[in-house]
């Protein structure tokens, strides 16, 4: 399965819906998407991972890269994920402390620091 990406705007947030597998082959597409959004002035991103079947460290690297970019513009990058096997990867790498992880897009969109 390949990677699917779609974006939509909710208020001042941009929701990126990701589906499929994020690995060493597909992660560059996600990176391009995040870079493009930031270059176009979207600094408050919500990455919806509910449709993700597989995530590896390359994918984590891309998300961390995205976070760095939005933070350079005082933006935010929030994740939506309820899948235990995906959450586990964030936990073992300590990234649960880096990313705000929400249980729904609505919650992520409404969240403020």
């Amino acid at each position: 399965m390949d990677l699917s990406l779609s974006t939509r705007t909710v208020g001042d947030r941009t929701v990126v819906e990701v589906g499929g597998e994020i690995d060493v082959y597909t992660a560059p597409k996600l990176r391009e998407q995040l870079v493009e959004l930031v270059n176009d002035g979207s600094f408050h991103l919500v990455v919806d991972m509910e449709g993700v079947d597989f995530l590896d460290s390359t994918g984590l690297g891309v998300l961390v890269g995205g976070l760095k970019r939005v933070r350079a513009h005082e933006g935010s990058l929030r994740l939506v994920c309820n899948q235990e096997r995906i959450l586990k990867i964030f936990r073992i790498t300590g990234l649960t402390k880096v990313f705000p992880i929400h249980t729904s897009v609505e919650e992520a969109v409404a969240a403020t620091d």
């Binding site: 460290s57 390359t58 984590l60 690297g61 990867i89 073992i92």
Partner: peptide, 17 residues
């Protein structure tokens, strides 16, 4: 640096799993 970081993150995931 980026390559080294990714390499280390991969190993971190393996040793965590």
């Amino acid at each position: 640096d980026a390559e080294t970081e990714e390499d280390e993150m991969g190993l971190a995931v393996i040793s965590g799993l």
